[in-house]
Each structure stands twice: as C-alpha cells, then as structure tokens.
Design a protein around this nucleic acid. Structure first.
Length: 104
DNA sequence: CCATTGACGAAGA
DNA sequence: TTCTTCGCCAATG
C-alpha cells in the first residue's frame, strides 16, 4: 500500500465533508494503519484537500502544526463545517464514505 | 537489525 | 469522562 492510495481517497472527499485517518486506512483494507495514513498526510503533495482529514473524534490533529495555526479548522469552516465548544466537529454529520474501489 | 517516533485509535483504569 | 497503555504501519537513526 503506497501513499498514492491514501491521496487518491482524500481527493474524493467532497467539499464540506471529512474522513478520519482510520477510516481511510480501512478503505485501503488495512484498518490498523491509521498511523501510516497520518504519515502519508504529513507528506501529502500540494493540490489535495488534506484539511478534510481529521481524527476519529472529529478533532483537528494539526492544530499547532500548521502555518498559521488552526489553518485546518479555518478551511473547514470555510466549507460550511461547524465546530462545537470542544473544537470538534460531528463525525456523524460530516463523515464521508467513498465507494469501495474494488481493487483488491 | 533494533529502537524510536508520529497529522491514529481502541481498550482499560 | 479523562488519562494511560498498547498495537499497528512506515520512516529514520
């Protein structure tokens, strides 16, 4: 499983929706590789909607790591996503489930 | 080859 | 509910 697979899925996430690292790993048939997905995202090439990837709790994992800080949240809010008082979004509301690419 | 780390996550305490 | 531990994958020293 190459990072290309990860990027391919991320690119399919529609505007205003999100996916978690573990969810993406699951679609690559490797539900235990959430961390590897995170690694891939950290090195994601430009041009992909990286901000639509959040952790399983609906929280932002890049809060203090972007320039400027909280950039991811700003981008998501710009797509209409609302955050609660804990700085988290509702996964049940915004989670996106791509079609299973039948590529075993 | 082994140890450590990291945009993760589920299970325990 | 919050904090800690452990497992997993890929990359690095």
């Amino acid at each position: 499983m190459g990072f290309e697979d990860v990027y391919a899925i991320v690119c399919k996430i529609p505007r205003g929706r999100v996916m978690s690292y573990g969810q993406i790993a699951g679609h690559l048939r490797q539900p235990l590789s959430a961390r590897a997905v995170g690694w891939a995202m950290q090195r994601c090439p430009k041009g992909i909607p990286w901000h639509r990837v959040v952790n399983a709790e609906g929280g932002i994992s890049t809060e203090m790591l972007t320039d400027p800080p909280r950039l991811q949240r700003l981008l998501l809010e710009g797509e209409g996503i609302r955050f609660d008082g804990s700085g988290k979004l509702s996964m049940s509301t915004y989670r996106w489930t791509p079609k299973k690419t039948k590529k075993k």
